[in-house]
Amino acid sequence: MAKIRGSIVVNIDRCKGCEVCMVSCPTGTIAMAKEVNHKGYYYAYPANPDLCIGCASCAMVCPDGVITVYKTKI
């Protein structure tokens, strides 16, 4: 169905868990983890990776630049 598939990689150690990426994701790919990183923040992670379209909206708004975005056509 989907012609464009995307994927994100979150640098978990640098994530501060502000949830701005989760709100800006148009497809609901990102959720906050139930566990914390070594700083004690509930980090963001791609909970529904199949939904990602590689739009880079999350990476655009991430204040700490922890998200790397990949996109390909299938």
């Binding site: 598939r5 995307g6 994927s7 990689v9 590689g54 880079a56 990476a59 655009m60 998200i67 790397t68 975005v69 990949y70 996109k71 390909t72």
Partner: peptide, 9 residues
């Protein structure tokens, strides 16, 4: 998908 050529950001 996670290949250098697919990197967008």
């Amino acid at each position: 998908i996670l290949k250098p050529e697919n990197l967008v950001y």
